[in-house]
Design a protein around this nucleic acid. Sequence first.
DNA 1: TCCTGTAACTTGTCTTGACAAGTTTGCCGA
DNA 2: TCGGCAAACTTGTCAAGACAAGTTACAGGA
Lengths: 256, 256
Amino acid sequence: MPSRSASRPRHAEIAQALREKIRSGELTPGSPLPSEARLTGQFAVSRGTVRQALAALRAEGLIAGGRGRVPVVRRTGLAQNFDQLVSFSLWARQMGRTPSARTLELSRRPVDAEAAEQLELEPGTPIFSYTRLRMLDGEPVLVERATFVETVGRLLLDCDLDGGSVYEQLGARGVELVEAQQTIAAIAAGGEDASLLGVPRRSPVLEVRRRAMDAEGVALEWSRDRYRGDAFEITIHNQDTLPRAGVALRSANGGR
Amino acid sequence: MPSRSASRPRHAEIAQALREKIRSGELTPGSPLPSEARLTGQFAVSRGTVRQALAALRAEGLIAGGRGRVPVVRRTGLAQNFDQLVSFSLWARQMGRTPSARTLELSRRPVDAEAAEQLELEPGTPIFSYTRLRMLDGEPVLVERATFVETVGRLLLDCDLDGGSVYEQLGARGVELVEAQQTIAAIAAGGEDASLLGVPRRSPVLEVRRRAMDAEGVALEWSRDRYRGDAFEITIHNQDTLPRAGVALRSANGGR
DNA sequence: TCCTGTAACTTGTCTTGACAAGTTTGCCGA
DNA sequence: TCGGCAAACTTGTCAAGACAAGTTACAGGA
């Protein structure tokens, strides 16, 4: 009977309210949440709605609990979002390092076989691709070879590739990448990568291949990033029986 | 297959049934699932139960959908549960390969400095550790150096280290690891690892350091796994703005 | 032919009610 | 004081129903 027309779903509001209580410190790790029955009263909703909100927090790993056990705060969730996960710039700034970039190439060309398969394009379809050398405090650490479908890639021409985060700039132009599949491998540095990164040939390099998609699951980007093996690690956090994980890049020698 | 028909929640059974239809190819990526109403009839449950099952598949990224839009299969999913994620044996069997193991060492000794920090133990506390060489179809691909806290490690003496999955065997003895933090790095193979894996020295190797915890978040295991770089990759799937990811090991040259 | 509006269908949200299964609490007896 | 047992409490599971909001299909008119 409540109008609630333009507002968000009730369960989302409740989840957000609880999230903020956790983030603000009102609920510290280890402290118990109110029981479902109490929350039902506090928010004046049915138990199903409360449970929907709690399920969201549980999926984020913010709370733990079980049958007969009142939910307990696990950690004060530091909001990791997609940008942070795949954006070198955002990550570096958050770590207190200074990121920079040098674009080595930006072109529009027919898609090659591999990218065609990953982006689900017909062979020969035009795409945009660039190669960038990324640096931390002036030291080269990453060679980035990205490929974008034409509709998105066209926007790259208006972006400052050597400036801020490409994802950020694309986001400002209405391109939202919200899902990605990434594959991590250890390879030996080839001649070009070795000289760009300033390491000996055949040094171990961390290769991350990324296929990024929009909300509909349409692949828009296909990239190969190559990190100096002596400078980078990738950490994965996963919990429960479900394969969900928080992923964070971490510099191996620098900040700990 | 374990009995499983005993008293598993109905929604879990439905989710599993749908998962298998997807994995078996009966439902291919792009094809629509039956509507909730139809599933309600097929499984003779209420709509809430069906939705609970679909929510699980959605969290795993297997299906997509939205209001008024019938769910659609996204991909034939791999990684399913924590065991698969960290258990070489389970993963290999599911991929149709034959895993085997050779235990090189198993000992009880005082904890070293690094493991003490990871396991949050006092320096000098006794722990159990082992080194295993893992093989796929007889070919060595992984050197595993694991450290367990004493209460868990003691159980290793009753386990068949060269037989099935250690996690499976520990699970049967009441030790449930449900959370892990893993760090992935590319390093050069040292002399010992190189000869064990049968690759040249300084070959690229994928190192996975793992800190595994029980439901209360207490660290029970600290391990360093080293995979042949030419044989293994790790794939991460993450979606939404939330840091959830499906993680699946995948053989680079062999399987698939 | 093209477009538009409506009806049917589908999923999202929310409620109420019930029982099962596990945990916590506190009382009582030894 | 200690141990065990039972009641109270809590979460997990499931049902049935109702309405809102979005999508699809189709008939009919311009």
